[in-house]
Amino acid sequence: MAIRFSWIEAHPTGIYLPSADAWIDPATPVDRAIITHGHSDHARGGHRAVLATRETLAIMECRYGPQSGQGLGYGEVIRIGDVDLRLVPAGHVLGSAQAVLERRGERVVVSGDYKRRPDPTCVPFEPVPCDVFVTEATFALPVFRHPPIGGEIARLLAAQQAQPDRAVLIGAYALGKAQRVIAELRRHGHDRPLFIHGALQRLCDLYRELGVTLGELLPISGLKPAALAGEIVLAPPSALNDRWSRRLPDPITAMASGWMRVRQRARQRGVEMPLVISDHADWDELTTTIREIAPREVWVTHGREDALVHWCREQQIPARELALIGREDEDD
């Protein structure tokens, strides 16, 4: 039998706490917003007050200007209305958090977006047992099983070494993915300068200000094409096939995304080297996480909700789809 809590409500525009008059990742501006992470489908501007990790608040300020609100450390407890809130790591991007909500002995965990794989740019996911677990379902189909990132980075570096007359152009989302790819390239021994599109500069600078080591990053502007032969260049996915990319010498076009598992998506993007690198949990991570947390009920947000709801019910776990609006697969 499904659990029904009067103190937490799911609306198309977000999850609402009536007694605290607070919304979690609302799709429209509200008086009080609890934000799980800085991607624009979860963190929007215009809220009167924001509760988030200090890193997420800094990311929102970088994107939207000064924010009125409070930055919290992981594990710090704050009471809003009659609900105790603490933020614990989600492992998605820098500052990403799960909202742990407790009231009169009941606990709900709103995960936001998350992954279970190691990531040198953010704190690992922390499983929290609860009564209700609100989970994403971006890659909630058994076909999505992400390979180890080390193998994808090794393929990339091998292609660079085998074709030294070509640049390597990697499409990577500006928040989280670009910095993770950079950090993994460093971890795998690439200590040469990396070149970045101007759209990545501000968030890379912020990551470094917040303590993430990225090594030497150089702007591509003003460089002659010949200077980029054999070099690695990172840009937002939207730049892969526009005029900006044509300045590069015969680039090997790559894209880092969980969607690169789907060959048709790679072809549609004109991607020569798909890199299956995701900041979201794959099918095994989603199901393993639910088993580990052992919730009494699961609420499923954006993505392949029906498949994950079906799996939960097969495991005798009550589950339902929330059908939240305004959620995207990634942040470009």
Score class of each variant (00 low, 15 high):
122 C>L: 09
296 R>A: 13
108 V>Q: 00
92 H>C: 06
65 G>A: 12
221 S>A: 15
332 D>P: 14
299 W>R: 02
170 I>T: 07
261 R>K: 15
174 A>K: 08
305 E>W: 02
138 T>K: 09
271 V>Q: 05
296 R>V: 07
65 G>M: 13
247 R>L: 12
300 V>D: 01
226 A>F: 11
129 P>I: 01
286 L>D: 02
210 L>T: 01
1 M>T: 13
330 E>N: 13
321 E>S: 15
119 D>Y: 02
202 R>G: 13
156 L>K: 05
201 Q>H: 11
259 W>Y: 14
118 P>L: 00
41 D>A: 12
93 V>D: 09
247 R>D: 04
149 I>A: 02
322 L>K: 03
304 R>G: 00
331 D>F: 02
68 S>W: 02
249 P>N: 03
11 H>K: 14
28 T>P: 02
321 E>V: 07
95 G>I: 08
293 I>S: 06
202 R>Q: 14
126 E>C: 06
331 D>C: 14
286 L>P: 02
283 W>A: 03
284 D>C: 11
253 T>R: 15
261 R>Q: 14
193 P>G: 08
298 V>F: 03
40 S>I: 03
169 L>F: 10
322 L>I: 04
52 A>F: 07
228 L>F: 07
222 G>L: 13
58 A>D: 12
217 L>F: 12
145 R>W: 00
22 A>F: 01
151 G>L: 12
57 L>H: 04
274 P>Y: 01
154 A>P: 05
1 M>P: 10
95 G>M: 12
90 A>C: 03
329 D>C: 10
119 D>A: 11
69 G>E: 05
1 M>Q: 11
260 M>Q: 13
217 L>W: 12
11 H>R: 15
258 G>D: 05
179 Q>Y: 02
82 D>L: 07
70 Q>D: 11
